[in-house]
Design a protein around this nucleic acid. Structure first.
Lengths: 137, 137
DNA sequence: CTTGACCCTATAGCTTACTTTAGGGTTTAT
DNA sequence: ATAAACCCTAAAGTAAGCTATAGGGTCAAG
């Protein structure tokens, strides 16, 4: 069983992120290299790679780095936690995202209303219904 | 015609923002007091109040301070601009918001999928489908 | 033996919209 | 006369997630 040792640039390329990003994640405690070479270079193994992919996947579904820290703890000590614990985190996050969507939808509707009311023509904007709305709302 | 002169604290209270926020907006060139009292206090009149409300209304429909700067220019020099100019800004903003909503909706759907797949029970998280997804996606 | 492509650390900068802090005058009421 | 409640400026701090810069080792190729 031969452990592959990747330098940071190789890991970065495979993961599709910059080396600075990996070092940044390390500074935030999200990931750290399995070891260091004699000259001080970071060396990563497959477990590290999997962990980085986990981080990026979690990010892609909307988790913040802080939340990913929690998820990583659950992942590493999965035997000490339940599915309920994990599901709770996704549930909370879903609610947050649903709220953001609701907010943005409300804003979008407001703008749509303004947009529909405005003639949008080459007339002077002195009586523009959008500006008036923003004045008097 | 008597001009009311409000000190910053009074304007802030009426508008429902902090005095620091008003000074911050001033530093960004969004608003400035009609004058100053002998002792250097900022004094605001009704026009300033209207301008501040305009700013807050524009913010509430999703415009950034930078964009509000543009809207204020249109508002102040409405006679030099057309409804088309104004409508263009809201149109662009609507597209941006629609895109954000689409992104968040996609993320929400992903989470929903994870959420549905997870038993959420008191079982050990060692085989939790959510963690597995985040590993293997 | 030097050039280029890597690697290292530490620190600063970016974006947005504020908030906080530090240090000091002013006004109002008691 | 003093304390509370305002006002002022200037600068630093906050959140999130990086990106960039400075200054300096390491390594393989030609």
């Amino acid at each position: 069983m031969k452990t592959e040792n990747l330098k940071i640039g190789q890991l970065a390329e495979r993961a599709g992120v910059s080396v600075e990003t990996i070092r940044f994640y390390e500074s935030k405690g999200l990931i750290s290299p399995a070891g260091r070479s004699a000259n001080g270079y970071r060396l990563y193994n497959e477990l590290d790679g999997a962990r980085l992919r986990f981080i990026l996947n979690a990010k892609s579904v909307g988790f913040t780095l802080k939340e990913i820290t929690d998820l990583l703890a659950l992942r590493v000590h999965a035997d000490h936690h339940t599915c309920e614990d994990v599901k709770q985190l996704t549930h909370t996050k879903m609610h947050e995202i649903a709220e953001k969507i609701a907010q943005l939808t409300a804003i979008h509707n407001s703008l749509q209303g303004l947009h529909n009311a405005c003639c949008g023509g080459p007339e002077s904007a002195e009586n523009c219904s959008i500006l008036e709305y923003l004045d008097n709302k």
